[in-house]
Amino acid sequence: MKIDDSVTTKTLLEIDKNIDALVKQIELLSYVNPTNIEEEKARFFASKYLTDPIFKYPNINFDKFKLHRKLFTQPIERIEDEDVRNLYEDVIYTYSGLIQCIENIGNGKDFYFNSLHCFGTPTENDVENAKFILHFEDENRELEQFQPKYSAKDSEIFFKEFSKKYNFNYHIEYSDKISAIAMVLNNVKTLVLNTNHTYSENEIAVLTNHEIGVHMVTTMNGLLHPLKIFSHGLPNNEETQEGLAVFSEYMSNNLTVTRLKELAYRVIAVDSLAKGYPFSRTFRLLHNQYDLDRESAFYITIRAHRGGGFTKDYLYLSGLKKVYDYYHSGKDLSLLLTGKVSIEYAEHIKFLIKKGYAVPAKHITDSYAENKNANKKVDFILRSLK
């Protein structure tokens, strides 16, 4: 459906264009990952897990105050439709919050409170769900598929082969300064692989479905709309996006109990952060009380404590449960693949597509075509989560 050329439409597109130009500069994950992870890991281990790491972060290369000012001078009162106007008000507050997060990276409580505002913190149910998952036994880690085999460079061929099923191109880069083993940078259409990690066959299967099958798919779909907020993200999109990504692991029969436990440990780490525990105490909670190996415990602790307290990690598990229930209630997953969107705005998305301000998803996550999950224990766990 084509959009009309009325004054109302021109006003909306102009505001959207202005916001697009401003938020292109904001990629939180580009700033929140420490640049000295390996050095501080060695120092932390040498201290017998007692001396908290002192992390360094990339320099910010944009004018924070100018971005805030330009966001809040957008004339959204000229958007006639109330729901769309409210959506853009939410968008502006969301991106202002992300700017505040970025400008306070490394500033302890200041960053933590901004992170709390943007992403929230685990509820009692979230923590109970995590503890429930941790009661289950891991898969046999001696199996061939779980053995580390491939360097980041070796892994590139698997990502390229997997991506042939999608009609888009993206960049692959390498880094030794990220806490994840792989991540997609939305603004620059780039997959980043961690050169400090050696990948197993299972991890590659998980990451191709997760990073390319969802994160890159929604990146590319988001660029196709007349309205660019689909590209940069609707408010609260992180929970839905990570839920969709982990759900693709489930649908492709690559979601394991071990992986679910990893997501559960992340919830425990963020809950520890919310209780005011320092890095060292969160690490010892995971390593000593929950018997997680020290390498895994360290990187999960980093993910929660980076920047001064990054609460986003608990959303993977809650997002997975929401998407799992959404799918099993018979709702259309393709609606959630239209860009960096959230379940809460599903009706807004339908309205914007109907009006021609947005388009249906062009690229569809391959694993969503058929439920190939054969892991009954994983199904039992997901059904049982509150």
Rank of each mutant, 00 (worst) to 15 (best):
K2C: 09
I3M: 05
I3W: 06
T11N: 02
L13T: 05
I15A: 07
L22D: 00
V23T: 09
Q25N: 14
I26H: 09
I26F: 10
E27D: 13
Y31E: 06
Y31M: 13
V32S: 06
T35Q: 11
K56L: 13
K56A: 12
Y57I: 04
I60C: 01
D63Y: 08
R69A: 14
R69D: 13
K70V: 07
I76S: 12
D81N: 15
D81W: 15
E82S: 11
L87C: 08
T94K: 09
I105W: 02
G106N: 03
N107R: 14
F111C: 00
H117S: 08
T121L: 15
P122S: 02
T123P: 03
N125Q: 15
D126P: 09
K131W: 12
E139Q: 11
Q147M: 01
K149F: 07
S151I: 11
K153R: 09
D154C: 04
S155M: 06
S155P: 05
F162G: 00
S163H: 00
S163I: 00
K164Y: 04
Y166E: 03
Y170N: 00
Y170Q: 02
K177C: 08
I181T: 10
L185Q: 14
N187K: 10
L191Q: 01
H197V: 11
E203Q: 09
E211Q: 06
E211P: 02
V214E: 02
M216Y: 04
V217Q: 05
M220P: 04
L224Q: 03
L227V: 10
L227S: 10
L234H: 06
E239N: 08
E242M: 07
E242I: 02
F247Y: 02
S248G: 02
Y250C: 05
V257A: 12
R259C: 02
R259V: 01
Y265G: 01
V267K: 05
F279S: 04
D291A: 15
E295Y: 13
Y299R: 09
G307I: 05
G309L: 11
T311I: 05
L320A: 05
K321G: 03
H328T: 12
G330F: 03
V341R: 00
A346R: 13
K362D: 06
H363Q: 07
I364C: 04
S367C: 07
N371I: 14
K372M: 03
K376P: 04
V378F: 02
F380Q: 13
F380H: 15
L385F: 04
L385Q: 01
